[in-house]
């Protein structure tokens, strides 16, 4: 090889090594990544990850071959102006062409077979006895969760599921197309109005996981988030029992005053506190906001944009559209002590 070629080859190899190091560094550094797609915690996401690993390895092999061939073609097996001799004129080679058709085809078959197998395995149309059904209803821009078998359990922003039990998410949208994305637990599935989509999974590791809407759905698409709490069976049953209990009725202090404000304010047009106020769900179909019966027990609010603290609740009620563009909740003009008391009431609804 000529000295210039050797220098080029060295330089480009070092550059390639840097690039690879950067890639690996990129993958490994930093964290935590609450929406990480590479930390599976359910049977579904583990199946996806193992496919992903296989494809990444095969893709990397192909990429290395292509890069090596390009380095060979550009730096080693070609000539430059002024070099002696004739350049090659080869423009056809049947064996070569067959090889580079058949080998990629075989690689693709190696990817396709487990792909199809996983697709079929992860989309059942029958569920075993004991499956927990969770209904997901997407709204602009928050998530509603209903538990039909747990009698009227209706909450928002966070969904609880037990480990080691088949969970069947049955999902639809109240308005436009959204997408229910919980990377560690269930991948994603679009949520389409007029259609029922499903995700079926068995979670295996208790913890708190993040989720977000991943189909552009309007002004606050970026703010339509949620949390998934994977509980042990005992903790899950406790949570269900708690959510099914009637709401706390404060009798003294700012919370009691807040309860009176709630009774007089227009909140009940959109929000339900079971047994206290709220219109029937059919009546308020287009305008309903989240069920607030046990609002105080939730960790987040407003589509999981904010932690559930009194300051954040007050900020939200004061001017929803300012913190969440396009929000359907109007400003009620509440401030000062009234606002403080209403917040105290809502937070008391544990």
């Amino acid at each position: 090889m000529k000295p210039r070629t050797i220098k080029f080859t060295r330089a480009s190899s070092i550059a390639a090594l840097f690039a690879m190091a950067a890639s690996i560094a990129g993958c490994a550094s930093g964290g935590p990544y609450p929406l990480d797609t590479l930390s599976p915690k359910s049977d579904l996401t583990r199946a996806i990850l193992s496919l992903f690993k296989e494809v990444t390895i095969l893709d990397s092999i192909v990429l290395v071959v292509v890069i090596a061939a390009m380095i060979g073609a550009i730096f080693i097996y070609s000539s430059r102006e002024g070099d002696p001799g004739e350049p090659s004129a080869m423009h056809s080679d049947v064996t070569l062409e067959m090889l580079w058709t058949v080998i990629p085809a075989l690689i693709l078959v190696a990817i396709t077979i487990p792909t199809v197998h996983t697709i079929i395995r992860t989309q059942p149309d029958k569920w075993p006895a004991g499956t927990l059904e969770v209904r997901v209803i997407a709204h602009q821009w928050w998530w509603e969760f209903q538990y039909p078998a747990q009698g009227g359990l209706d909450t928002a922003d966070e969904v609880h599921i037990p480990i080691n039990r088949t969970i069947h998410f049955a999902m639809t949208s109240n308005d436009v197309i959204h997408s229910f994305f919980m990377p560690s637990i269930g991948g994603k599935r679009d949520v389409v109005p007029g259609q029922n989509n499903q995700i079926t999974l068995i979670a295996d590791t208790p913890g708190e996981y993040y989720g977000q809407c991943t189909e552009f759905c309007g002004a606050s698409h970026a703010n339509m988030r949620f949390r998934v709490f994977v509980d042990t069976p005992e903790a899950f049953d406790q949570w269900v029992a708690h959510q099914q209990a009637p709401p706390f009725k404060p009798t003294e202090g700012p919370a009691a005053n807040g309860a009176k404000i709630w009774a007089n304010a227009p909140c009940a047009i959109c929000h339900t506190i079971r047994g206290v106020s709220g219109f029937s769900k059919d009546y308020t179909y287009g305008f309903r906001g989240p069920d607030l019966t046990h609002f105080g027990s939730r960790t987040t609010l407003a589509g999981s944009m904010f932690d559930n603290t009194p300051q954040n609740v007050a900020m939200w009620i004061k001017d929803p559209v300012a913190v969440k563009p396009g929000a359907n909740m109007p400003t009620l003009g509440l401030e000062g002590q009234d606002l403080h008391d209403l917040v105290a009431y809502l937070e008391s609804l544990k």
Binding site: S79, S88, L96, E97
Partner: peptide, 26 residues
């Protein structure tokens, strides 16, 4: 999924043919 994998084959043929065009040239 199957058809999308299939379409990668003729595309790959093109990439390799381009590299082979450069190989041995001036």
């Amino acid at each position: 999924a199957i058809t999308s994998m299939l379409i990668a084959i003729p595309t790959g043929v093109k990439v390799f043919s381009w590299i082979a065009t450069v190989w041995g040239g001036r």
